[in-house]
């Protein structure tokens, strides 16, 4: 049963990832991304990371992909891109070389990592402690990782302010006209 779930989820993940990379329409790429994210959430559930699976669906599939689709629709850039032409000579070949190299490296790493000696003392808290997954996660998050958690809130505030500043446009004028109005002579350019 476990193997079956893993096989289906892995197939969904890999097909979705291929779809993101090779689909010509950005909207299709975003929908394929949702598919991949759901597959990852299934694997999180299979590994007893229930809270992260829920967050994965809510934050990634629910918020980030919707943000992507919103930007695609807002800008009207959902035109198909011709993925067969190669404007930079050798870009695709270089990409293949780099990809092959990283496949080799990561596979070697995964083989090595699977032989890591298990049963070492836990760095923070063990997974099989008291309480469910959520209780354990919250305990560690609000004790050992409290400073990182607070820093994250600062990061989110910075992101919100940055998004507002970047997307802001003074009403009734394009950015170019606005610059001209504020230039001292008015006809300097």
């Amino acid at each position: 049963m476990d193997v079956f779930v893993f096989a289906v989820a892995a197939a969904v993940i890999l097909i979705g990832a291929m779809g993101v990379v090779f689909s010509r329409n950005p909207v299709h790429a975003a929908l394929m991304l949702v598919m991949t994210l759901f597959g990852i959430a299934v694997l999180f559930v299979q590994q007893q990371a229930h809270f992260l699976a829920a967050v994965q669906v809510v934050v990634y599939a629910g918020a980030i992909v919707v943000l992507f689709l919103f930007v695609i629709m807002l800008l009207g850039v959902d035109v198909a891109e011709n993925v067969t032409v190669e404007p930079l000579v050798g870009q695709r070949t270089a990409a293949w070389v780099i990809t092959a190299g990283s496949v080799g490296l990561l596979t070697a790493l995964a083989i090595r990592a699977a032989q890591v000696s298990l049963g070492m003392p836990s760095g923070t808290r063990p997974l099989d402690g008291e309480g469910g997954n959520l209780v354990q996660l919250a305990r560690v998050l609000f004790s050992d990782y409290l400073f990182a958690f607070e820093a994250t809130s600062v990061l989110l505030v910075i992101a919100v302010v940055g998004a507002v500043v970047l997307a802001n446009r003074s009403p009734g004028s394009t950015a170019d006209a606005g610059e001209q109005e504020h230039s001292p002579t008015g006809a300097g350019r």
Partner: peptide, 20 residues
């Protein structure tokens, strides 16, 4: 899960926030 350590899941939580 391999190392029986909740720390990996906390890191994933932070990765989610930074990704957002």
């Amino acid at each position: 899960r391999m190392l029986n350590d909740i720390g990996g899941q906390v890191v994933v939580f932070f990765v989610l926030v930074v990704a957002a």
